[in-house]
Design a protein around this nucleic acid. Structure first.
Lengths: 203, 203
DNA sequence: TACCGGGGTTAACAAAGGTTAATAAATCCA
DNA sequence: TGGATTTATTAACCTTTGTTAACCCCGGTA
């Protein structure tokens, strides 16, 4: 029994009172997926409706900008969900590429199969709502960052909340997720260091 | 029978096959809400779990930035949903203010009551999923704009898709939603006009 | 009519970010 | 190990945005 499965069984019990022993119909349609570093999980133009819980590793969702270089829509890592959202929400081919930045292990469910199971077992519905809410929360958090914070503040927030992850990812991807170039991120770091030294000196 | 209710009954039938006659349990917990121009729907610090379908009017969700002036997280108008997302997702007091920019009419449901009804009538679940998916799609679309487009491109996209709405809202709110100052939006408009004239002259 | 306030534009200057290119540092791999 | 590639930093220069303040327009109203 994998780590992810028992974790999701606990979650399901907490959310809806369904006992681990009764989760068989759900886990019959899941499968473990492994990606090696640099491998694409979803390619551009691919029409899939996959949903996966990341047990280990980091995945980056990105696409090419009109300027030529690419923009990172988000990073997802262990404990988070990754979903082919163009396929699931709009039933359209993915405009984004999902690629593993590290070796990845995850528990995958096909969303169409999940819907079939949910028709027969509505007691699992709280799980779907939990997933959607979590993804909605993450998307809104990203949006808030762009509306309310400067790039420097977004970087500080990221360091503050996700230091471990930031340190595992090349800065250029962090930069493109923050909406700035790598050169600019480098300057932001320089400014922060300079200010940090000044503050220390002041004490 | 209000316009909104029959519209939502149609939606429910399409999504889940539930006939309008069977939607009584759901609509028993809805109520029509009217706001006058400038009136707040949700205040900062308020803990509510409201969900509303806007029949007419525009609502703006915003908060104050560290710089002092305020940032607009999003605008929602007729045909869209508005939800107190801090309350619904995180069970947190709202960090945002939701205020009517025009007289607003909407159909409101309390999310807690909705959950009660859904326990007894799981056949309405597709409606909740539809709502969540729609909000998720809108949030991701906003995020994509910031990652992949320049402020000028975001403005053009907004004009392109929501011209009618842009024209009903003061530019300063449009600017703060695009993540720029009103002054900067004014310059963007100037550049676009200049380029427009040049292109005409070139033909 | 005169006054007032909100909203939009413009100008001038400062600050920040983009672009390009050179260099240094780290990583990969043969 | 040595050479090649990728990544990060720095600098120089240019463009865009932020900030502040002045000005105009318009609508409401005393």
């Amino acid at each position: 029994m994998s780590f992810s499965i028992s974790l999701l069984q606990e979650l399901l019990q907490e959310l809806s009172g369904v006992l681990p022993a009764d989760t068989a119909p759900l886990f019959a349609i899941t499968r473990m997926v492994k990606l090696e570093e640099g491998e694409a999980y979803i390619r551009e133009g691919e029409l899939t409706r996959k949903l996966a819980y990341i047990e280990k590793g980091i995945i980056r969702a990105y696409a090419e900008k009109s300027s030529g270089d690419d923009g990172t829509l988000f990073l997802r890592w262990e404990g988070q969900l990754i979903a082919s959202h163009d396929g699931i929400i709009q039933r359209q081919p993915s405009r984004f590429i999902y690629r593993a930045l590290e070796p990845v292990t995850m528990l995958e469910i096909d969303y169409d199969k999940l819907e079939e199971v949910l028709k027969v077992h509505p007691e699992f519905e709280p799980l779907r709502n939990y997933f959607l809410m979590k993804m909605l929360g993450e998307a809104l958090e990203g949006l808030e960052g762009f509306v309310f914070l400067t790039p420097e503040e977004r970087y500080l927030r990221l360091l503050d909340s996700k230091w471990g992850v930031v340190n595992r990812v090349p800065d250029k991807y962090i930069a493109s997720m923050l909406g700035v170039t790598p050169v600019s991120l480098s300057r932001i770091r320089k400014r922060l260091h300079a200010r940090g030294r000044k503050n220390e000196a002041g004490n």
